[in-house]
Amino acid sequence: MTQISTTSRWSETTGAATTRVPEGLWLRCPACAGMIYRKQMEANQRVCPDCEHHFRVSGTERVQYLADEGSFEPMWAELTCVDPLKFVDLKAYKDRLAAEQAKTGQIEGALTGRAFIKGRAVMLGVLDLSFFMGTLSSVVGEKLTRAIEYATEHDLPLVIVSGSGGARMQESTLSLMQMAKTSAALARFDQAGGLFVSVLTDPTTGGVTASFAMLGDLIIAEPKALVGFAGPRVIQQTIRQELPEGFQRSEFLLKSGIIDRVVHRHQLRNEIARFIDYAGK
């Protein structure tokens, strides 16, 4: 059993576009540039109290924000990576994994397990952005597939919160195959009449977007989250023109007809509970 009490400073220390202000009592909001009191921001579910900017959050924090207090029961948390490719780039994959484990106290990315959301039983899956950028590995794919199968078997509403850099390169086609694996499991869940709410957070890209994240019966995204198949830099290099303002952000996806709703972090529990009620689950 993993505990959900690990306090992660991840989003301020390593988050790409968060802030460069040294860790301390105060930090600068990357959106409004205002100085905000860290504790206040954290107590506000990591949302800037001034401009509503949604900071990135770790998997454990996400579970805290979403699930009824103390209701999350982690499942399959002990699954480990077996590194079948023995992948080495400038560093060995197993060393990178060890570093991620030391940093987060987690064995692998993604937390899965039963939980309650406003008193409604759900199967919850959360990709952990703080672990290897939330990338989809064999373990993450296996955990999610088990979660989907469990939800199918027990007729539980399924909620998956995505935040991910995509498929994990270090597992090559094996991580690629997790896209097919999770998607196929969702087909069975769908045929069984299950309700799947997919929650997209900043950033959700690549193989995660191009599989389970886009297969929700209902797809909701946090405000201004970057969500796309290809990264903006790759697109810019390909088409060689400036990308429009707000391209690939939640609001752009909403306008393009790709997602159902843009939902503030504080409203996620309410919205999910409402969906569960409308679906009669």
């Binding site: 059993m1 029961e73 982690p74 499942m75 399959w76 002990e78 699954l79 480990t80 990576c81 077996v82 079948p84 590995s137 064999s138 373990v139 794919g141 296996e142 597939t145 088990r146 597992e171 094996l174 991580s175 195959m177 997790q178 097919a180 694996k181 196929a184 499991a185």
Partner: peptide
């Protein structure tokens, strides 16, 4: 496809 991507399972999963 379900079988692709082996993982380690040190203890029995809950």
């Amino acid at each position: 496809f379900r079988a692709l991507g082996k993982v380690g399972e040190p203890r029995r999963s809950s």
